[in-house]
Design a protein around this nucleic acid. Structure first.
Lengths: 126, 126
DNA sequence: GGTTTAATGCAACTAAGTTGCGAAAGTAGA
DNA sequence: TCTACTTTCGCAACTTAGTTGCATTAAACC
């Protein structure tokens, strides 16, 4: 069970994800809400939102934890198998809504995938 | 430029990668050479071996840095685009020698990919 | 409004990874 | 093999992401 109470802090975090479609690193989020709430609170709210299926978590190339809004996820089923794209120029991370086919592996059972593409985003290409 | 001197510590680290084909987390490597060398030395040797193209680096699902031996890599060109497989049961990580096709993205230039598959390895399936 | 309990703030902590510097050990040339 | 030069190492101190415990605050339901 994730979020049970809609506190001011929860709304603030939700607003950030609602307002633009980019993924955010926890470090960045903590910076964004500095003065408004404690970093512990940020970590705990993200934990709860993830349990709810509101957001999903993955690792950026920088080794940091990143979070982004989920599309069509619920507490029970998490469609977090989509790849992410991180721009090596501006560091912005996007969720990609395409499916990557993984060739089947003998003697291995693949449950989840974690795919990060890196390069230049549309803003940095022009 | 990476390794210039073949020290005892460098040989110890190289031996670990030569003896089996698994990827190792830095934390695990530090544990393996405990008493023989300092953790700072481990980090620095790994840095140099990576620059040489002897080993390559990627992030495990645990958020830790992992290293594995390179096949056919040089200082100039790094063929580190292969996917990795991490067993969720025994934590062992393997390099997979298969190619994953990434569909082309409009307005994006993809330079590198970081693909981690997770599930059960052959040892843990039986 | 009062009570219950989830959520928050704070401070202290853990652990991965980095940095600076003096000491030790490769390497090359005599 | 001895010497001189320069890389590499060890140590200690530091940085930063992320976690934990506990007392306090504030949603939510009556």
């Amino acid at each position: 069970m994730g979020i049970v109470r809609k506190t001011k802090a929860v709304n603030t975090v939700l607003n950030i994800f609602e307002h633009n479609n980019e993924a955010k690193s926890v470090v960045n989020l903590i910076e964004l809400v500095k003065g408004e709430m404690n970093k512990t609170t940020v970590y705990r709210i993200l934990d709860r939102l993830e349990q709810d299926g509101t957001i999903h978590c993955f690792n950026g190339k920088d080794g940091l934890k990143w979070y982004a809004k989920c599309n069509g996820c619920s507490e029970n089923h998490h469609y977090d198998l989509h790849p992410h794209f991180q721009c090596t120029n501006c560091d912005k991370v996007e969720c990609l809504s395409l499916e990557v086919k993984i060739p089947s592996l003998k003697n291995h059972k693949v449950d989840t995938t974690d795919i990060l593409l890196m390069g230049q985003c549309s803003d940095c290409l022009t």
